[in-house]
């Protein structure tokens, strides 16, 4: 399976993952600072900033776009419970 890697800036930890893994699955296991509420893309709690490799995550769904907008997300912000890792990227809690 194709490999990708994600770096959590707050804990300076890089993890290599199978492409398609959701950020939430990794961040909780390594103890990164991204926090979760509903875990289903509704509450906006898990907002993170993608500092590198913005294009290496799956495109946000219409619903995610909406939640991001409602939570006044900045540029390159995503929901960690929704975004799937496709290539190398770097993130930190929003």
């Amino acid at each position: 399976m194709a490999k990708a890697s994600i770096t959590f800036e707050d804990i300076e930890q890089t993890v290599s993952v199978p492409a398609g893994t959701r950020v939430i699955e990794v961040s909780e296991k390594v103890g990164a600072g991204i926090i979760y509420g509903c875990r289903e893309g509704d509450c906006g709690t898990c907002m993170m900033e993608v500092t590198e490799g913005w294009n290496n995550l799956t495109e946000p769904s219409v619903l995610e776009e909406k939640v991001l907008k409602e939570n006044m997300a900045g540029r390159h912000y995503r929901l960690a419970c929704q975004a799937q890792i496709l290539g190398d990227c770097k993130v930190k809690p929003a």
């Binding site: 804990i11 930890q13 890089t14 390594v30």
Partner: peptide, 19 residues
């Protein structure tokens, strides 16, 4: 050390090795 921002350099972890 992790409190005062001196985390030891960590190698890349493989997802499969995470508990």
């Amino acid at each position: 050390e992790s409190l005062v921002g001196k985390p030891q350099k960590k190698a890349v972890i493989d997802f499969a090795d995470l508990a």
